[in-house]
Design a protein around this nucleic acid. Structure first.
Lengths: 222, 222
DNA sequence: ACAACAATGTAGACTATGACAACAAAGATG
DNA sequence: CATCTTTGTTGTCATAGTCTACATTGTTGT
């Protein structure tokens, strides 16, 4: 079902050259920044209908481009999903950063702010977060994705180091301490997106998680 | 591509009645317990190639049944996935139970055993665990699935209550305390399946997580 | 025994998708 | 302005999910 009747060399269509402009909005042959447009539309669909519903062909249609076009920017469907996940980690990193900065200088408020921001992200973009942590038990985790994830984790690391400098947290490898915190928060997000905890239990759970982490970090090492 | 050339009323085949047995293994028209067979094969494929690769038609082929047959047992693909997730939660619950029982009577060893068992499950059945926590941000979480999940969580709850009776944990709603523990462990599993932590970091991380939980539970409430 | 009836499988059709290849159009480059 | 590269387009193929009509078997009530 060609949208416009295949203009071959023999049948140059209605010679929609530089003048015929009445019939169609006359989209240019080249989209301009198709890749970005696809990613944006994909993010919308992802949020509204989940990853399973994401179809390259449908995206192409929605963006107003032929079904083969996306292939120039994403080798296959998985490549698109990876790009989405990467963008997700970058956005998450930014949101964690701004949350931390917006919470003042002190360690504890910053910690709470980061945890809240993380969970807020999970609430608003559940499907995206799922995608970001979808291991796919895939052998090849693309480098760029891993890097973006590390960067988001880096925000937490910096916070841990601040906590240690201020004496609120015990010393020790920041990565190791950070992973425990990261796991707790991501676990809460996981319980949320899976529907095992309701949204109205969230604040309490986040507060509890942070409180446990802080309390443990102040106790003598066992 | 019919495996056996469509025996219609006009062409009753070679009248493969009760005697003709030389040509084919002669599968009975009714499989007997197709549902189970499908689930088992699905679990294998899930473990080896992930959920994305799961195809009803391929399952049907592998089990030796026509492509429409699965429909009698699973309304659609999602129903199969839900059944897999449910079975997963049931199996997880069992494994947590046996781990706890096998660890003696004391609270702390039991806690460690449960955490280890959980993470072992995540290691062996990463794709399945992903499926179990795939929120699908679906409005309708099937009741049976939710029930199975609650049951698995119940094993943790019982442990929490034991800890409280023995004074190892503070008092408080067990559900609330349990969620923090659950989140931490599931978060670790999440980091694992997503590839953000390597398998050789696991033991340490689990030990840390449990230690944090225990230490926090013994400190004065903040 | 046997005649409905329900449960389970089969076969075919339809649409959609992802992936690929051959071709067309526009930009970039010298 | 000729050539090369990038980006889109169109057509094709295999496969999947889903639905419908039909076949076979098991079950049940009489």
């Amino acid at each position: 079902m060609p949208v416009r009747a295949a203009p071959t060399a023999e049948h140059p269509g209605e010679s929609e050259g530089k003048n015929a402009r009445a019939t169609t909005p006359e989209r240019p042959y080249h989209h301009g920044n198709l890749r970005t447009a696809l990613l944006e539309q994909a993010e919308r669909t992802l949020r509204e209908r989940g990853a399973q519903e994401l179809s390259l062909r449908e995206l192409a249609r929605e963006v107003g481009v032929s079904h083969g076009a996306p292939r120039r920017h994403f080798a296959d469907r998985q490549a698109l999903l990876d790009a989405l996940a990467q963008a997700g980690f970058e956005r998450l990193g930014e949101q964690l950063s701004t949350a931390a900065e917006g919470a003042g200088e002190d360690f504890e408020p910053r910690l709470r702010a980061i945890a809240s921001a993380y969970v807020r992200f999970a609430t608003r973009d559940a499907a995206l977060l799922e995608l970001m942590f979808a291991g796919k038990h895939r052998e090849q985790v693309p480098g760029a994705l891993h890097e973006a994830a590390e960067h988001a984790f880096g925000v937490m690391l910096a916070l841990i180091e601040q906590g240690q400098r201020e004496g609120a947290l015990q010393d020790g490898e920041p990565e190791r301490v950070g992973l425990v915190l990261f796991a707790t928060i991501q676990g809460i997000a996981s319980l949320l997106t899976s529907g095992l905890v309701r949204e109205d239990q969230l604040d309490e759970l986040v507060a509890d998680g942070v409180a446990y982490f802080l309390r443990a970090s102040r106790s003598p090492t066992g």
